[in-house]
């Protein structure tokens, strides 16, 4: 997750006592969980297309998530069956340990991953180890889905009757962006703010292309 970094958290008790902790001292999954909550989410206007992972399934379902700015390429995708299936998408980082994204929704049916290019997945081999099976997928680079998404965004604006230039000035920008996302059929994978940031990113890209629908 990119964007502004929280520094402190305070828990206020009903007897008036408040306990403060450094945000960085909290366990990582708890920090992630807190930042998922809309109450603590902040928009990341600096997020560019290189900060988002777009996941598309065989059934057309599409999710987006924002990743650490240090992520530089897809490492691999595989699914562990135990018998429940869990997908693991790992992204290489240039300067630290990889980022690991768990895919819970139909992991064997993930069709493509878009991150710095779009890659189609196909099952390469399955390896049984005791009661679990690891299914490893190969990644084949295909035409970038992002260009299509910009066009879909533009179409959604027209269909919803929304002016691109007025989009960032609206007080209800979040609701408008959600409306566009719904029409495009994209949902947030783990944090609603990621979806809003992605939509804002598409809007910026469209502005740069200079092709406002109105």
């Amino acid at each position: 997750m990119s964007g502004p970094i929280p520094k402190k958290i305070t828990v206020q008790y009903d007897d008036g006592i408040g306990i403060e902790a450094n945000f960085a001292d909290l366990p990582y999954p708890f920090r992630q969980e807190l930042l998922r909550q809309p109450a603590f989410s902040q928009a990341n206007p600096a997020a560019g297309k290189e900060n988002f992972v777009l996941l598309e399934w065989e059934d057309g379902w599409c999710e987006v998530l924002q990743v650490d700015p240090g992520c530089c390429e897809i490492n691999r995708y595989y699914v562990i069956s135990r018998p429940e299936d869990v997908g693991r998408l790992s992204l290489k980082k240039s300067d630290s340990y990889p980022e690991l994204i768990e895919i819970i929704r139909r992991p064997m049916e993930l069709k493509s991953v878009a991150f710095l290019g779009t890659y189609e997945l196909s099952l390469e081999r399955s390896v049984r180890e005791g009661k679990k099976v690891d299914h490893f997928f190969s990644l084949k680079k295909v035409d970038d889905i992002l260009e299509k998404e910009i066009k879909h965004f533009q179409m959604a604006l027209i269909e919803e009757g929304i002016d691109l230039e007025a989009l960032s000035n609206q007080g209800s920008a979040a609701r408008t962006l959600e409306k566009i996302a719904r029409r495009m059929g994209i949902v947030a994978s783990r944090r609603q703010q990621d979806l809003l940031d992605f939509m804002a990113c598409l809007a910026n890209m469209l502005r740069k292309q200079g092709s406002s629908p109105r």
Partner: peptide
């Protein structure tokens, strides 16, 4: 016990490395 999810995640990240 509050550290369990983080430790599991870190070990999995190490596996990805």
């Amino acid at each position: 016990p509050e550290l369990i999810p983080e430790k599991i995640l870190r070990y999995r990240i190490l596996k990805e490395k």
